[in-house]
């Protein structure tokens, strides 16, 4: 699986209230949640997103705070398939896989990306290429079992497939 998109950079400790404020937690609909993505940080941020062609590149501890699964759902719902970060908060990291959002942890190498850079992610190779600078960054490829969850679109469809339900 490969993803390409324009980089949208974010800082450290982007919390779940920034990703999706609690007032919107009365919905479970990805489109509805996606229409408020990052509103707790900047109500106009969504204008920068090109659905299907944007990638978030964030700093440390992305997704800290609440266990709300609505956070990765809002990002997926906004049309962003991948978040590259220095590091992720634990609950968010687990939720991301379950919701079919690709979380990639690359530490200090996030400094290689500026807002607007063209990014290509190769999941099988474990390689991120900054097409704007030519710089390539390797990350440990995910085990096949975790990639299978992402390929199915999240844990629920994955389990359903496994159960043959």
């Amino acid at each position: 699986m490969k993803y390409t998109g324009t980089s949208l950079t974010l800082g450290d400790h982007i919390d779940t209230d920034a990703i999706i404020p609690a007032v919107y937690l009365v919905s479970t609909d990805p489109k509805e949640l996606g229409s408020h993505c990052m509103e707790g940080m900047d109500p106009k941020w969504l204008n920068k997103v090109a659905p299907g062609a944007s990638v978030i590149v964030a700093g440390r501890n992305f997704g800290c705070g609440s266990s709300r699964e609505h956070a990765p759902v809002a990002i997926v719902g906004a049309g962003i398939p991948v978040v590259i970060a220095h590091s992720f908060a634990r609950i968010f990291y687990r939720n991301a896989f379950n919701m079919g959002l690709v979380p990639i942890e690359i530490g200090e190498a996030v400094s290689e990306f500026k807002e607007g850079d063209q990014v290509e992610v190769d999941m099988a190779e474990g390689k991120i290429t900054n097409k704007s600078t030519g710089k390539a960054i390797d990350f440990p490829p995910l085990p096949e079992s975790m990639r299978a969850i992402l390929d199915a679109g999240g844990l629920a469809p994955f389990v359903k497939k496994r159960l043959g339900a």
Binding site: S67, I91, R94, N95, N98, L155
Partner: peptide, 27 residues
Amino acid sequence: IGADSHTCTYGGMGAFATGMGSTDIAG
């Protein structure tokens, strides 16, 4: 396990308790 990040509260009485997302809770 609880679908709430403050599930860790029960550690105060010697329980291993941790927050997870809704789909992990469904599992």
